[in-house]
Design a protein around this nucleic acid. Structure first.
Lengths: 336, 336
DNA sequence: TCTAATAACGAAAGCGCTTTCGATAGAGGA
DNA sequence: TCCTCTATCGAAAGCGCTTTCGTTATTAGA
């Protein structure tokens, strides 16, 4: 690979001047700049990111961390959609992504240590547990950070409007005549889970609807199987709900399966509304009515917020709420 | 951040000795090594990846490129599953991933240039167009490379056994009594598409089954919508097939939709078999019978193959075929 | 007792780039 | 003619680390 020294030799200027020409310093004449640029072209010169980072203390990389609790990693459609959108924007601004890891040459290190090692310029953490000490460590570090869908007072935050989403779901169900509305919740340790519960209870209270024992059912970490289990419990209740607001599409899919297996129909017997609007939602039977999260906007705003901190060279504490949207399909119907 | 110099000063040794201690050189006594390691611990020292890379010419990063044709990026379940598996293995061996980009500080560069800039140790390219000059450029470079699901003679290759998969599908359909078997194909410009066509035609020929005009239908780039269009054309044929082998699950989903919309049933009127076994396949109605690709193994083997080249410091040309598997669910039935 | 081998360490150069600061030459002003 | 500015360039140090090679002290061998 051609280095800055090579093109210095070729053009007869010093490496200093070459570097300045490439970085648009004002104290290099237009003529020599052109000569240098031409040599760069001819020799196919490219800067070396590592040398550049070493000397400028800026790596043009961003560390990405997301929950690995459920072992899905970036296979989860919600995560991957956000990351993809984030990546697009980051790339547009010249940044590359580095995924969190805890292995440095077979030494066990923390995520923050990994990011420090790679000298990332900023960190984004997605839907992880806010109380995780690893996450805390990052938030308390000096590296600019933005977290997604995790309530936190001490750093910048982009979050989907989960409370409003919960209300939206309940109100829609109520508008169809339902009053016995249960909620299969995401675990309250996750911010998304906790907030949707808030939205659910708030809306139920506002509508003066009772929440009988067992109607607020913890569904765990959003997997299809946990949805099955939770729905099973709801079906075994004395007073089975006529509508269920499920805190995640995967869980909703599991719930629908169980309902069918029990000889009941969706939505005729039980209406189901999900949350997320993953791709699959539009293709199962019945097509799933759900609360759509704007993953594109979430990723975009997170990137923007992080870039701003990086450019200003200081941590900002700002939060950005992203609206959600009710997507009406076929899994809910009028109460009979 | 503490540097090697800081811990040299603290322990009274030279930076040379510190570096050697950290890298397990034999010419540093056990006693001083322990002292140094302790100081490292106390000061929370971490090496600087950029400095290290600069001096060793090894970055412990791997460049990842995948097709952006269909604009889905890593949102595609098949891609993201492979990448996730690849990432896990790479991480285990100490590598981080860098995604391809063509933007360097707002300058338009090639993928190879981007990877050179970041000085990646190896490249993996997934299901891209083998004839893409950008891909060619990478293959012809000196950087170790492995490609996934793209036929190529000049570099290492991990591929899913698409021909066998095609045969598997056709034979299964035939075993159910079907003889009028059509194929909604992936575009022949993609390796996966072309190979599955080969498998289809080979199996049909071996079974002495005719392939009437129109039965081999190009479905394009594997999207749901393209599947709809292709199935629509099949339905308008004079002699409508009783079974269709669809080259991708997404397309199969589109196909099923269209069949239903036309008042026909799956599998009673038309049997459908897909390809990939994406998550959704198990949850649509009817549950999709399909050919499962072993994404875990593909990602794992690709990582292994790449690491080996990196360790040996030379490009290897080896190919690894990954077997596929027939997953029987509910979308195919006995010919009546 | 002297020499040769070995063990343990450090000086220094180098990886490729940026940035500070000083040097030089020519332009313009008085 | 002399002085001050400005424009243009380069020397050199430094970013944090690795690696070669030389030095010194110690031990073993004869």
């Amino acid at each position: 690979m051609a280095t800055i020294y090579d093109i210095a030799k070729k053009t007869g200027f010093s490496t200093t001047t070459v570097s300045k020409a490439l970085n648009n310093y004002s104290d290099v004449s237009e003529k020599t700049k052109q000569k240098i640029l031409q040599a760069v072209e001819e020799m196919g010169y490219l800067p070396n990111a590592h040398a550049q980072s070493l000397s400028t203390k800026k790596s043009w990389t961003i560390g990405v961390m997301f929950s690995e609790d459920n072992e899905v990693g970036m296979k989860h459609p919600f995560f991957s959609a956000i990351i993809e959108s984030f990546r697009k924007q980051a790339e547009r601004e010249g940044y590359d992504l580095i995924f969190a890891s805890r292995n440095l040459r077979n030494r066990d290190i923390s995520y923050l240590e990994h990011f420090s090692y790679r000298a990332v310029d900023g960190i984004v953490v997605i839907c992880s547990d806010p109380k995780d000490p690893q996450v805390q460590e990052m938030i308390n570090s000096t590296i600019p950070i933005v977290v997604i869908d995790m309530n936190n007072q001490n750093c910048s935050l982009v979050y989907s409007d989960n409370i409003e989403g919960g209300k939206l779901a309940v109100n829609y169900l109520h508008s169809l005549g339902h009053t016995k509305i249960a909620h299969i919740a995401g675990d309250a340790s996750t911010d998304a889970g906790a907030e949707r519960i808030k939205g659910y209870t708030k809306a139920m209270n506002d509508l003066k609807l009772p929440i009988p024992e067992g109607y607020l059912m913890n569904g765990g970490l959003f997997s299809i199987n946990e949805g099955r289990v939770a729905m099973g419990k709801l079906l075994s209740l004395d007073d089975v709900p006529t509508a269920v607001f499920v805190a995640g599409d995967h869980m909703a899919i599991g719930a629908i399966e169980v309902i069918k297996e029990n000889g009941l129909r969706v939505p005729e017997d039980i209406s189901i509304i999900g949350y997320d609007d993953i791709e699959m939602a539009a293709y199962i039977t019945p097509k799933l009515t759900t609360i759509k999260q704007d993953t594109d906007l979430i990723g975009y705003q997170a990137a923007k917020l992080l870039m701003e901190q990086i450019t200003q060279k200081k941590k900002l504490v700002r939060s950005e709420r992203i609206p959600v949207e009710l997507i009406i399909r076929d899994s809910c119907s009028q109460k009979k």
